[in-house]
Amino acid sequence: MSDKPKIDEISGVETTGHSWDGIEELNTPLPKWWVWTFVVSVIWSLGYVILMPAWPFPGANGWEYTKGLLGYSQRVKVTDQIAANEAALNVYRDQIAAQPIEAVQNNDELFQVALASGKSLFGDNCAPCHGSGAQGALGFPNLNDDDWLWGGTLEDIQVTISHGIRWDDDDETRINDMPAFIKDEILTPEEGSAVVEFVLQISDQNHDAAKAAAGATVFADQCAMCHGEGGEGMTMMGAPDLTDAIWLYGGDRDTIMESITNGRRGQMPAWSGRLTEGDIKELAIYVHSLGGGE
């Protein structure tokens, strides 16, 4: 078009010639700073495409991409960072693995590392059964309290974690057997009921005194071997204390009857094959620190 550019009378600015309902569009030039920013961005992007990973293209083994002259890769960077963190942690892990567990416990620095690592290991491996706060659940012991089936010293806990409980694949696993007294007809239901009253008596609960007296004899014959003469339990055998306030399956009349009828066979995996020696030490120290450690 050879027409002269139209000038808007009011603003004195050239118009584009576009008109809508008589309103004409001004051809206002772009601000210079904007134009220059745009130009610099274009130049920058050219350099970026050459130096950094940029274009995807289909290759022989699926999608590939131009790598860029700098060879930058976020994945490699993250891998390096993880490796660096691991290396820094390994300084402590090596010491924890090399030293006896008491030495780790008494070294403030190693103790703090063990607590922190133990906590995250616990969350990953133990929390599904024992709970995130190690508070336990029905059939899964609370690890915060001072009642330990197999002992609550650092070494006891370490052994339990390493070899598990009634874990067939581990030769050194902790094992005992609470028989199904009534189901297997070792005791009659009446004898069983009497023992229940005796257990209620020694655990300081409401009970039938006459039946409990009869139950005491049965208890002495059948139960005391593992649970002790007074029912105070025996950590050597993994036999629970029946006199205290803590019950793994429950301490009421019906639940105790159920335990005597069918027996109890809780299981815990052996972790020695899955976790390293150091990891298990860290876990043992963490569990020990929850408040019940002996």
């Binding site: 709970g131 706060g133 190690a134 609370n142 001072d146 306030a245 408040g291």
Partner: peptide, 8 residues
């Protein structure tokens, strides 16, 4: 977690 612990 836990809110409280009952001892033996």
């Amino acid at each position: 977690s836990p809110v409280f612990v009952t001892l033996s």
